[in-house]
Simulated scan of single mutants.
Amino acid sequence: MAVPSIPVDRIRAEARELRPGRGLLTLLFLIPFLLGWSVGALWTGLAWMWAAVVAGYRQGAGRTGAAQDGEAR
Rank of each mutant, 00 (worst) to 15 (best):
G65F: 15
L35N: 03
P20Y: 14
S38Y: 07
G21A: 14
D69K: 02
V54R: 04
L27M: 13
A61I: 03
F29W: 15
R19N: 00
W48T: 13
S38L: 13
G60P: 01
R19E: 00
Q59I: 06
S38C: 08
L30H: 02
G23H: 15
R19D: 00
A41C: 04
A47R: 11
L34Y: 05
I31V: 13
L46P: 08
P32N: 06
R16C: 06
L35V: 08
G36N: 03
W37A: 15
S38Q: 11
V54H: 05
P32D: 04
V39I: 14
G56W: 11
L24H: 08
R22C: 00
A47S: 14
V54P: 02
V39Q: 02
T64C: 07
I31Y: 11
R63T: 14
Q59K: 12
L30C: 02
G60E: 03
G40L: 07
L28A: 08
A41M: 09
T44P: 02
M49V: 09
A41E: 04
L46C: 08
D69W: 03
L24E: 02
A15K: 01
L18P: 01
T64E: 08
A67Y: 11
W37E: 12
A41K: 12
A66G: 04
W43Q: 10
G23F: 15
A52Y: 04
M49P: 06
G45T: 05
G21T: 07
L25H: 10
S38P: 03
E14R: 00
A55N: 04
L24K: 12
Y57M: 04
Q68R: 12
L28F: 15
R22I: 01
G62E: 01
L46Q: 13
S38E: 09
F33C: 01
L34V: 07
D69N: 08
A47G: 06
P20C: 02
R22F: 03
L25P: 01
Y57N: 05
L24Q: 09
L28N: 02
L25W: 15
L18C: 06
L27P: 00
G62R: 03
G65E: 04
G40E: 10
W50C: 06
L42W: 01
T44R: 14
L27N: 13
Q59M: 11
T44N: 10
G56R: 04
G70T: 01
T26W: 14
Q59D: 10
L18V: 14
A41S: 09
A67N: 07
T26A: 13
I31M: 10
G21W: 06
W37M: 14
E17D: 03
F33K: 00
G56D: 11
Q59V: 07
W48A: 13
G36C: 03
V53E: 05
S38D: 07
L27Q: 12
G23Q: 10
L46E: 09
A15V: 01
G21N: 05
L28M: 05
T64D: 15
T64V: 07
V54I: 15
G70K: 00
T44D: 09
L18N: 05
T64K: 06
A61C: 10
A52R: 01
P32S: 05
Q68G: 09
L46F: 12
A51R: 09
V54G: 02
P20L: 05
M49S: 14
A47M: 07
W37L: 15
L25G: 06
E17C: 00
Q59T: 10
P32C: 05
R16M: 13
R63E: 10
G62I: 01
A61E: 09
A61S: 15
